[in-house]
């Protein structure tokens, strides 16, 4: 029965004993309905883009409907082929793999230094990192882009990979996790003759699988969605990624349904990843920021 489950309710304002009151029952049902409505609002755009991708341009601009006249997969296939999405996916995957490795490795290493080793003067570095948490990169993208060209890293994935190695938010996540690892373990490793770097690879990383998972998933979705720097660095080369392509539609006379199909292709991989790791992702998202 619908209301019985409320007796085992562990958190929240409405307690198990409240549910006996009819007023509370109505309230519980109302809340349920509101939540279901929110689900519709949250999921509908993604469902709509899937449906709209089956329309052709005439149907799209003239018909006042949500459901397409027919589900013609060949249209999707044509757009996929015309845009060479296989290539863009491939490029995006290269970009993601490098970015994720950099995100875990460099931010983890810095957090290890700032949270565990704490050498003399580490507070300066920590302060700088915390401040960069406040001023994200968009403001200095022009200067950054100029620098990348000056050092000759343009037309390459390298600056995109490394840019993920400097993320203050992820440093903080790692740092918080590392600080909770028992110091005794580190001391024991030190007695066994491990150097600082070996402690990191042999003790810290294996113990940090949960946080690595969280940062890696964040990095994967962020790298997939990232477009301004990739656009500036890669546009016009053969390394164009899915998002770079999507951003360039701003200026090309590509028809609306092709743009929609491309948008649909762009949300497939994150949706799949989300479907697989949803539990980890939602838990990580909540846990990560609670202390930050």
């Amino acid at each position: 029965m619908f209301f019985n489950k409320y007796n085992d309710k562990k958190d929240g304002v409405i307690r198990g004993y409240d549910i006996r009151s009819p007023k509370i029952k109505v309230l519980a049902v109302l809340i349920m309905l509101v939540c279901l409505f929110m689900v519709c609002v949250c999921l509908f755009p993604a469902i709509w883009v899937f449906l709209a991708s089956f329309k052709d341009i005439r149907e799209f601009t003239k018909n006042v409907t949500i459901i397409p006249d027919s589900f013609d997969w060949s249209r999707m296939g044509q757009t996929w082929k015309a845009f060479k999405f296989t290539k863009y996916y491939y490029n995006s995957f290269i970009s993601i793999i490098g970015s994720t490795i950099c995100a875990v490795f460099f931010n983890g290493l810095l957090a290890y230094g700032l949270g565990v080793l704490r050498p003399k003067g580490y507070k300066i570095a920590l302060g700088l990192v915390m401040w960069s948490l406040m001023i994200p990169g968009v403001t200095s993208i022009v200067a950054l882009f100029r620098n990348i060209n000056l050092v000759g890293l343009n037309k390459s994935f390298i600056p995109l990979w490394f840019s993920f190695g400097a993320n203050a938010f992820w440093v903080v996540l790692f740092k918080q996790f590392f600080e909770e690892i028992p110091k005794e373990l580190l001391e024991a490793a030190k007695l066994d003759g491990c150097g600082v770097f070996q402690i990191f690879t042999r003790i810290m990383l294996p113990l940090s699988k949960p946080i690595i998972m969280v940062v890696a998933i964040f990095a994967v979705t962020a790298a997939w969605s990232d477009f301004l720097l990739p656009y500036l660095v890669l546009n016009g080369t053969d390394k164009v990624t899915v998002m770079v392509k999507l951003f360039s539609f701003k200026d090309t006379p590509t028809d609306a349904v092709s743009v929609l199909r491309a948008s649909f292709f762009a949300i497939i991989p994150p949706t799949i990843i989300f479907a697989i790791f949803q539990r980890k992702i939602t838990d990580g998202a909540a846990a990560g920021a609670v202390k930050g």
Binding site: P45, V242, A266, P270, T271, I273, A285
Partner: peptide, 9 residues
């Protein structure tokens, strides 16, 4: 879910 969708899309 909207959070993991690429913002451009």
């Amino acid at each position: 879910f909207p959070n993991i969708m690429p913002s451009l899309a």
